[in-house]
């Protein structure tokens, strides 16, 4: 017993070392599946504040490029508007359809404006932190887009900040389709260049070519259909040879992401349920 105690005292730094390493690895492996670990991420209050202060400074450096992007986007949109106006004129005879479409679009979702305060693109599992949280209406599993295209899905939220799993994370999987032909597959990323992601399960009989636009499919409740993702850059075979593997050039430039929008999809059933429960309580 005495020998054992002597041994322990003599080698106590070994014990401490092993203890600390075990803590590190427990943190490392539990973080991914552990929903309550928001305090150990950059969504906690202190780190969020520090990043926000830094972002207030560095945000100015990107203004020029953001501005030119906006101008370009603006012109694109005004051209599109012109086209739509033409189409609208043709369709005004049947006004009920237009009214219905407008209402549907408004009912479906609203947007929350947010700033990116921390971002990385070089790891295998990247994360983005934004400066909006639960108090602003951001919740887990909401979709996030930027002006140029899809960004990712909200993963963790605190009162004022949220962590997003962007496309550039090996765990991310977003349902996409080819705009012209509606064939769909899942967008994945496995490290490497932040400009490209892959769709590995596109069926053999699907029709598409290099340069085709890829948009979200709307099959999940996270993104509405038609949010821009990227273009087909290269067509290859998947590992098992049963389907096509498409390399997608992403529209979103993750390396200089600054402003994003969180998509809030309001659910009619949910709203009705809530209202009903309030009425029941009053009775």
């Amino acid at each position: 017993m005495r020998n054992l105690l002597d041994f322990l005292i003599k080698y106590k730094h070994w014990l401490l070392f092993i203890f600390l390493e075990v803590i590190s690895f427990v943190l490392l492996f539990r973080f991914n599946g552990y929903q309550g670990s928001v305090y150990f991420t950059s969504a906690n209050a202190v780190t969020g504040k520090v990043y926000q202060m830094a972002n207030n400074l560095t945000g100015y450096f990107h203004l020029k490029t953001i501005n030119s992007d906006l101008v370009q986007h603006n012109t694109e949109l005004s051209i599109q508007l012109e086209h739509l106006r033409d189409a609208y004129k043709k369709l005004t005879a049947d006004t009920t359809i237009i009214e219905q479409m407008k209402q549907e679009a408004l009912m479906d979702c609203s947007l929350i404006k947010a700033n990116v305060i921390n971002n990385s693109t070089t790891h295998t599992n990247n994360f983005i932190t934004i400066d909006k949280g639960e108090e602003d209406g951001v919740q887990k599993e909401m979709g996030v887009v930027s002006g140029s295209g899809v960004v990712g899905i909200v993963y963790q939220t605190s009162a004022h900040y949220a962590v997003i799993i962007p496309v550039l994370n090996s765990k991310s999987s977003i349902s996409c389709k080819i705009r012209q032909s509606d064939y769909f597959g899942f967008l994945k990323w496995s490290g490497g260049s932040p400009e490209f992601a892959f769709i590995k399960d596109m069926p053999r009989h699907s029709v598409f070519e290099v340069g085709d636009t890829i948009v979200t499919s709307g099959h999940s409740t996270i993104f509405p259909s038609g949010v821009l993702v990227g273009t087909v850059d290269e067509i290859g075979d998947s590992n098992d040879g049963l389907s096509y593997s498409i390399r997608v050039r992403l529209f979103t430039d993750f390396a200089r992401l600054n402003e994003v929008r969180v998509i809030v999809k309001s659910n009619i059933e949910e709203q009705l349920e809530l209202e009903e429960s309030v009425i029941n309580k009053e009775e």
């Binding site: 070392f17 803590i23 690895f25 490392l28 991420t41 994360f127 932190t129």
Partner: peptide, 17 residues
Amino acid sequence: VDIFCNTPGMHAAAITL
């Protein structure tokens, strides 16, 4: 460093070693 970089445990394990 880990808490800021969203990598809990990674830097801690390396620097402790």
